[in-house]
Write a protein that binds this DNA or RNA. Structure first.
Length: 328
DNA sequence: GACCAGGCCAGCG
DNA sequence: CGCTGGCATGGT
């Protein structure tokens, strides 16, 4: 029993035709979800704990609260999930007949959707993701939530909400240095400070206001929000599906498969122009497909076209009463 | 010990 | 503009 308020548990199901939960939550876009050994996807988003499981066209859910707070206002759980997972927004990507790689990638990833992440959590998450493997980044984000968020007890598991910007803004870089965050350490409080200052004037930002905050962050050196991280924030939390984050993998596939060379900015402009309003989906298909082909042994992703029953190595909660004996 | 991780940034030409 | 090292740290 932990010192958390007990929440009403809600359960139900929503219709999700053409949707794939495993690809959506196991692709590496989210950091606070994991697939448990019991087969359920468990995670926390918008201050609410969810357990999800897909059975054909229906998505079964358990949630820690009846209403979920978002920047569009509070939503009932089923409406929230439809919005958060874009259940009814199946992407339609036009691909030319001779682009066999993209056709194969699109086919493999049928059912994948971009999640509508919380803007601030997304900002900090991708600032931390720089030059670090997925699993390590997950651990660091969970550490932040455990240190500064508040706990929610759900089905004998403890989850932690992501802290408000002003909480992280008041931390010193040395705190994160001591947690071995490396040179990401100072970027966390600095980014939080810029967000926090704006939030003092705007109490509950709309999506457009969040977009302005994100855009402003891109111009502030030291925040860790450069071209790639900025595009991740746009794509994963700002509802900008035309954004293309260019990392080392995208750089390689652009060169290998399309003969496009040059700087990150050049490849980014090429991909965004090519894909138009759906460039994000087009790029994500290629990214996951290419990475799966070239680094199938990476242990930080759940998606595998060969075997998708591997539990996530890092879960966003702790079992209550499962005290580990290994601690000194 | 190399070499790389879903890069960013200051300091150059 | 575009390019180059340096940056901490953990994993293979």
């Amino acid at each position: 029993m932990i010192g958390a308020a007990r929440n009403a548990e809600v359960q139900g199901e929503v219709c999700a035709p053409g949707f794939n939960l495993g690809y959506t939550l196991g692709s590496g876009q989210v950091f606070r979800w994991g697939r448990d050994a019991d087969g359920w996807w468990k995670g926390i988003a918008y201050n609410t704990v969810f357990h999800l499981r897909q059975d054909g066209d229906s998505l079964h859910y358990l949630a820690s609260s009846t209403r979920v707070p978002t920047y569009l206002g509070p939503m009932p759980v089923s409406a929230f999930l439809e919005w958060y997972l874009r259940l009814k927004a199946s992407p339609r990507i036009r691909v030319s007949r001779d682009d066999t790689r993209l056709r194969a990638a699109r086919q493999k990833l049928r059912g994948f959707r971009f999640v509508r992440q919380e803007p601030f959590e997304c900002i900090i998450s991708y600032v931390l993701s720089v030059q670090a493997h997925m699993n390590l980044t997950k651990q660091r984000i969970n550490f932040i939530a455990k240190s500064f968020g508040h706990p929610i007890s759900f089905r004998n598991e403890a989850y932690w909400t992501f802290p408000q910007p002003h909480i992280l803004a008041s931390q010193a870089g040395i705190f994160f240095r001591r947690q071995r965050f490396g040179w990401r350490s100072e970027r966390v409080p600095l980014s939080a400070q810029h967000v926090s200052v704006i939030l003092k004037k705007i109490e509950c930002p709309t999506l457009d206001q969040w977009r302005s905050i994100g855009d402003e962050l891109k111009g502030v050196p030291g925040t860790g929000v450069g071209l790639k991280v900025g595009k991740c924030i746009d794509l994963f939390s700002m509802d900008r599906l035309n954004a293309v984050p260019v990392d080392t993998w995208v750089l390689k596939l652009a060169k290998e498969w399309y003969g496009v060379k040059g700087s990150d900015a050049k490849v980014c402009a090429w991909a965004e122009n090519r894909g138009g309003s759906q460039a994000g989906y087009m790029n994500e298909y290629l990214f996951i497909y290419y990475r799966e082909l070239n680094a199938p042994t990476l242990h930080d992703q759940v998606i595998s076209f060969c075997a998708s029953d591997i539990p996530s190595p890092e879960l966003p909660f702790e079992r209550v009463g499962a005290q580990d004996q290994n601690q000194i």
